[in-house]
Design a binder for these strands. Structure first.
Length: 281
DNA sequence: GGTATGAATTCTGGAGCTTC
DNA sequence: GAAGCTCCAGAATTCATACC
């Protein structure tokens, strides 16, 4: 154990996990900062998982606080960097800090501060060709729609309702869309599109002018609320569904006809959102 | 000033695979 | 066997706002 190293680590302004791993390393190090604990030793000392320890080591390396030399067959040698560790807080590498919401980018261009290797910021040009069949399959729970179908349907709806269209399809958005597609049936999606279109609140008709965006609907709780008609401003918070509002505005008979056609289309296994939306409209 | 709420972001751990 | 890497889903945290 190096008291000198540990004292320097305590004075750093590191995120909790990184500081904990750094302390565990300092606990094994000599006064030169040299040590060779295994990942499992660091796991035991910190109480963190293997993955968390690895990530913390990677972050410390990137910040210059740590150097790691691989020793084939013998694990790794770590060198704590006293110069960096001892750097005053105000000049030390600071942890990632989020922008306040008012400074954040609007939905489509929000990016994770640590994009993973292989992440892409794909520019979506709605078409019928950007299917991702390999990503949609999941044993046990088949998604009701593909990511491309969801994005296309949203962009179509957004264009009609003056909402923000999806310009970039991040890995995070893809993942959430896939999750939603597995959670909800195709008629749930059709109902959500319709409820958004019929909700003045979701289209900016609120005190702050806030509008629903793609990320908003990818939240499970938001999706359920839209589905249940809780954003139906005309009906208030009583929970009356947008479907009933649709009946009132369009006329009971017409709405019933449309719903019947929609149910029939769904029963027949129709998966084309454009067709379904055409019926809904 | 304290508290509750909603939305957005970040962190964490499991699984599976590869490399040395 | 040890370590690294990526993907994924859920938990935790942060922040702004509204309300008392």
């Amino acid at each position: 154990m190096s008291i000198r190293m540990m004292t320097l680590v305590w004075d750093t302004d590191l995120p909790a996990t990184e500081k904990l791993v750094m302390l565990a390393l300092a606990d094994c190090a000599n006064d030169e900062g040299k040590c060779w604990p295994s990942i499992s030793t660091l796991m035991r000392k910190t109480g963190a998982s293997e993955r968390t320890v690895q990530r913390a080591i990677q972050a410390l390396k990137e910040k210059g606080l740590l150097r790691r030399d691989d020793v084939h067959g013998r694990g790794c040698l770590y060198f704590l960097n006293p110069r960096h560790v001892g750097t005053p807080v105000n000049t030390a590498p600071v942890p990632q800090r989020r922008e306040p919401p008012s400074e954040r980018h609007p939905t489509p261009v929000t990016e994770a501060p640590h994009p993973r290797h292989g992440d892409t910021q794909t520019v979506i040009e709605p078409s019928e060709n950007h299917q991702e069949p390999s990503e949609e399959s999941s044993p046990g729970s088949e998604p009701s729609l593909s990511v491309a179908e969801i994005v296309d349907a949203w962009n179509d709806l957004a264009a009609r309702c003056g909402l923000v269209t999806v310009v970039k399809l991040t890995e995070d958005r893809k993942r959430k869309a896939r999750t939603q597609a597995k959670r909800f049936s195709i008629d749930d999606w059709a109902n959500v599109w319709r409820n958004i279109e019929q909700s003045s609140f979701l289209r900016g008709g609120n005190e702050r002018g806030w509008r629903a965006d793609f990320n908003f609907i990818l939240s499970e709780s938001n999706f359920v609320k839209i589905l249940e008609g809780k954003y139906d401003s005309a009906q208030g918070a009583a929970g009356t569904s947008a479907r009933r509002k649709s009946d009132r505005e369009i006329g009971m008979g017409l709405a019933r006809d449309r719903r019947t056609a929609l149910d029939r289309a769904i029963d027949e296994g129709l998966t084309n959102l454009d067709v379904i939306e055409g019926i809904v409209r």
